[in-house]
Design a protein around this nucleic acid. Structure first.
Lengths: 125, 125
DNA sequence: GGCTATCATCGCGTTATGACGATGAATTCT
DNA sequence: AGAATTCATCGTCATAACGCGATGATAGCC
């Protein structure tokens, strides 16, 4: 039974420990919700509550995903008062996503991955 | 209950259908075995039996992973006689892996992912 | 002080996933 | 033909993972 120190978050923490960091990295991006979180954070900080609203998911769900991303070192948070502002830690992550986008484009699938409309878009609130 | 046309392979096929191709892509790379397969194929074609031996896994297991990678369009096979020679379909995949490697390196984890001998690479068998 | 908002965790139920062995098809060898 | 090899699928089992609500901690607000 695998149990990372903090409780059964997702396998990432375990894997990241040493088994296969790459698998862990990809794993953390293999979930649509986390992917959306990453995309969102790419446009700027966000609180859990923001993400909860934008994603339409329960707060606990969002928190857990953020924990997963934290375990992988992809995001951090800046605690301010009682709220945490999450943000990406690695700019290189966007390179990775860009590579993925390119690959998908080459694969010829109907993909519109990153709306690439950062400025025009209006965050929920 | 999700069942792709061919049977419950892995979620990739379903996802790739339209939900989130990116998640599907990352998902297919989120497993260490599949990752190893990809690394192996990066060095040249391989049969199922070869991979079975090198990975130390059951033939059915390897076949299933290959099916998963096929569903994602990452690999193809060239049937010859009764054996199938699998190979990568997308060179861009290595760019993706390179990005991942770079990201992991930046993360500061002790990672030696791809033996890093890409261009000079020498086919195994 | 009491109340509410924000967030991290825990526990739970449902579904997905990975590994295996068994089966059957196609192919090659004797 | 008969046997063996290669491989795809199927069925099954154990575990991981996603989503949710509940709980508790901390921090602002009346």
């Amino acid at each position: 039974m695998t149990m990372n120190s903090e409780g059964g978050r997702c396998v990432s923490a375990d894997i990241a420990a040493g088994v296969s960091p790459a698998a862990a990295l990809f794993h953390s991006l293999a979930d649509e919700t986390r992917l959306r979180i990453v995309q969102r954070l790419a446009r700027g900080e966000a609180r859990v509550v923001d993400l909860t609203g934008e994603l339409g998911l329960a707060q606990s769900t969002v928190s857990k995903h953020l924990a997963c991303l934290r375990d992988c070192g992809l995001v951090t948070y800046r605690a301010e008062g009682r709220q945490s502002f999450y943000s990406l830690t690695r700019p290189e992550l966007m390179d990775l996503l860009a590579s993925a986008e390119q690959l998908l484009a080459a694969t010829g699938r109907p993909v519109v991955l990153w709306p690439t409309r950062p400025t025009t878009q209006e965050p929920a609130s």
